[in-house]
Simulated assay, not measured.
Amino acid sequence: MDEKEIQSFLVISSVVLLVIIFTMISLFLLFRKKKNDLLLEKKLAEQKFEQEIAKTQIEIREEIFRNISWELHDNIGQLLTLAKIQLVNNLSTDEVKDTISKSIKELRTLSKLINPEALKNIELKQAIQDEIDRFNRLNFIKANLVIEGETKALDHKTEIVFFRMLQEFFSNTIKHAKASNLCVTLKYLPNMLMVIAKDNGLGFDITNTENAGIGLINIKTRAKLVKAEAEICSKINEGTQLTITYPYQNGNS
């Protein structure tokens, strides 16, 4: 190999080497950019999730305060008015004591809801049971909670989202469905939790887009937030059913 060929070989080798180095640097920078983009996307998703959780907590708190306001005005107010009437009419002391005792019991129940720690320590099964008890106590509707399988504690934020979804369903049942019965079932299956809420109210045409109120849309949106699925089935005069399906995350709750 003469000197000219050697020079040509060196030039070609240098060019190839530079191309390889440039390609490797480009791939590295591209990989780094994609990694940073993924980290940023993950961070933004986490921030959005936390914002939605905070929003959900505020909505739960607002719903609780609305309930408290109503109970103070209509329920406890009526009990205290009754006690006053009993005193004016000189009814037996036992009757007056019984009425006042009921008022105190109702106030104690409400005071637990007002406690700021109540929402922080929310536990799905107990939160639902408290709502069921309230409905029955105030004769809103005949309601019951059924537990199937071995109870599993879910992520706290997931339970908050589930409870808000159920709150919206309950609100629709109480205010619009004119139902007489409400049943909530928690099915703890080996790999997933199924939450089923069903009423026997008026129902509606699910195919009519005008019936897709903001509450029903929020339920489905919130389900996606915690990687669950929400299905709403309804027929006119046959009631409405909400089914939430939640596969346990990473093989656990």
Results as ranks from 00 to 15, higher is better:
Leu44Lys: 08
Ile141Thr: 01
Leu119Thr: 05
Phe31Asn: 11
Asn139Val: 08
Ala153Gly: 11
Ser69Glu: 01
Glu123Thr: 08
Ile104Ser: 14
Leu40Pro: 03
Leu119Phe: 08
Leu124Glu: 04
Leu145Gly: 02
Leu119Gln: 04
Ile122Tyr: 00
Ile76Pro: 01
Ile85Leu: 08
Leu138Arg: 13
Trp70Phe: 15
Asn144Phe: 14
Lys105Gly: 11
Thr151Cys: 12
Thr81Gln: 14
Ala153Lys: 15
Glu159Cys: 06
Ile141Met: 05
Glu123Ala: 11
Gln126Arg: 13
Leu107Gly: 03
Ile141Trp: 05
Gln57Gly: 12
Asp155Ile: 11
Asp37Val: 06
Asp98Val: 11
Ile68Met: 07
Asp155Glu: 07
Ile58Met: 11
Thr151Arg: 12
Asn136Met: 04
Phe135Ile: 05
Ile128Tyr: 05
Leu87Glu: 08
Lys102Ile: 04
Lys152Asn: 05
Asn75Ser: 11
Leu29Pro: 03
Arg137Met: 08
Thr109Ile: 05
Ile141Arg: 03
Glu131Gly: 08
Lys105Ala: 15
Ile68Pro: 00
Phe65Val: 09
Ala143Met: 05
Lys43Cys: 09
Gln129Trp: 03
Arg134Ser: 10
Val96Lys: 03
Lys42Phe: 09
Ser92Phe: 12
Lys34His: 08
Ala153Trp: 12
Lys42Pro: 10
Leu80Gln: 06
Leu91Ser: 10
Val88Met: 14
Arg66Thr: 01
Ala54Leu: 13
Met165Lys: 02
Phe49Tyr: 03
Gln167Trp: 03
Asp133Trp: 02
Leu113Gly: 03
Arg108Phe: 00
Pro116Met: 04
Ile64Met: 02
Leu91Glu: 11
Glu159Pro: 08
Leu154Glu: 04
Glu150Arg: 14
Asp37Met: 12
Asp74Val: 07
Val161Met: 01
Ala83Gln: 08
Arg164Glu: 04
Phe140His: 09
Asn89Tyr: 13
Asp133Thr: 04
Glu46Met: 07
Asp133Val: 10
Gln57Leu: 10
Glu50Met: 13
Ile128His: 09
Leu154Cys: 02
Lys42Leu: 15
Ile128Glu: 00
Ile160Lys: 03
Ser92Ala: 14
Ser111Trp: 06
Lys120His: 12
Asp94Ser: 14
Ile58Ser: 06
Ile147Ala: 06
Asn67Trp: 00
